[in-house]
């Protein structure tokens, strides 16, 4: 890998770390996702700093064209993360719905009690 490529990928990884840190500090990110993306950018940093790591790991696994290993791993990772997000989103939607139902039922009960109180008072 050329020096330029290494610098670019290191900058990219650093950029991701910076964004994640900023989001985290602003409170816009739950810490579990913060950790996930920081770990991801750490891996990116390592690969930028020492691209030989990819070749070494590829050699262990018997992969001939090692860059494809990076793509496969990245794709697999993104897929797992997306499925996890779909699951989490479904769960949130359900929780919101149950919450709404409770709000509607409580509001009804409150109205009823107000009416009763008015009738008595």
């Amino acid at each position: 890998m050329s020096l330029t490529a290494r610098i670019v990928s290191a900058l990219l990884a650093a950029f991701v770390v910076a964004i994640i840190l900023k989001l985290q500090r602003r409170g816009g990110l739950v810490s579990k996702y913060g950790l996930l993306w920081m770990a991801t950018s750490a891996v990116m940093l390592v690969m930028a700093a020492a691209p030989d790591v990819v070749d070494t790991v590829g050699g262990w696994l018997g992969v001939e064209y090692t860059p494809s290993l990076v793509f496969m791993a990245a794709l697999g990772f993104v897929l797992v993360v997306l499925v996890q997000y779909s699951w989490e989103l479904s769960r949130s939607e359900q929780r919101i719905q149950i919450l709404m139902e409770e709000v509607a039922l409580l509001r009804r009960e409150l109205d009823e009690q107000r009416k009763d109180a008015e009738a008595e008072g």
Binding site: Q97, M100, E101, V103, A104, L105, R107, R108
Partner: peptide
């Protein structure tokens, strides 16, 4: 009247 604060769809209204 039961009021859902946001539009959740027919099925959700029925469930409530």
């Amino acid at each position: 009247v039961l009021r859902l604060p946001v539009n959740l769809g027919y099925g959700a209204a029925l469930r409530l």
